[in-house]
Computed example of a mutant assay.
Amino acid sequence: MTRAFAVAGFALAGLLMVAVELAARREGSRVPALGDVCGYVMRYQVGRVPVGRIGILGFWWWLGWHFFAR
């Protein structure tokens, strides 16, 4: 039963992401698209250290570790 709740939660999160992306792509929308948010995060630096890129890399590592390393 717990696995069904987890799958349903991830499916709901995916559907919400799609809904937000569709809302962002409407004419005159003030909601940023996912690509715009990722571009903003990737540009973030502290001095010469690309903290945003390191954060995105860490997120992808975490995601892969939890879902594909079984």
Score class of each variant (00 low, 15 high):
S29H: 04
V7F: 09
G14I: 02
A23V: 02
I56E: 07
M17A: 15
E21V: 06
G35W: 07
W61T: 03
A69K: 12
G39W: 03
V46L: 12
G14A: 12
Y40K: 14
L16V: 04
R43P: 01
G64F: 07
A6P: 00
M17H: 01
R53V: 03
F10G: 03
G58F: 02
D36V: 04
D36F: 01
W62P: 00
V46H: 11
L16I: 05
P32W: 03
F59L: 13
V51L: 15
P50V: 00
A33V: 00
Y40T: 13
A19Y: 05
Q45A: 06
R26V: 08
A13V: 11
V18R: 11
M1D: 08
P32F: 03
G55S: 10
W62C: 03
G55A: 15
M42R: 15
E27L: 06
R53N: 03
I54S: 03
A8C: 05
E27D: 14
G14Y: 07
V51H: 05
A11D: 12
G58S: 11
G28T: 01
A23Y: 04
W60C: 14
G47Y: 03
G58H: 02
A11I: 04
P32G: 04
A69H: 11
L57W: 04
M17Q: 07
L57C: 02
I54W: 09
V46T: 04
L15Q: 05
R30E: 14
A23H: 08
F10E: 05
L16G: 09
W62A: 14
A19M: 14
L15D: 00
R43W: 01
E21F: 05
L16N: 07
G14C: 11
W65F: 12
L12M: 13
L34H: 10
L15C: 07
F10R: 02
G47D: 02
A24C: 03
V49R: 08
P50D: 04
Q45K: 15
V20W: 13
P32R: 06
A13K: 05
T2A: 12
V18H: 00
A19V: 10
C38R: 15
A13M: 10
C38H: 08
A6W: 05
F67I: 08
E21P: 13
A6L: 13
R25N: 15
W65Y: 11
R48V: 08
G9S: 08
D36G: 13
F59S: 08
A8F: 06
G14Q: 07
W65L: 09
R48N: 10
V20S: 13
A23W: 08
D36I: 00
R26M: 14
G28Y: 04
V41A: 07
L22W: 06
A4K: 13
L16W: 09
A24T: 02
Y40G: 05
M1W: 06
R53Q: 15
R25I: 00
L34Y: 13
V18C: 07
V7C: 06
M17E: 13
V41P: 12
W62S: 12
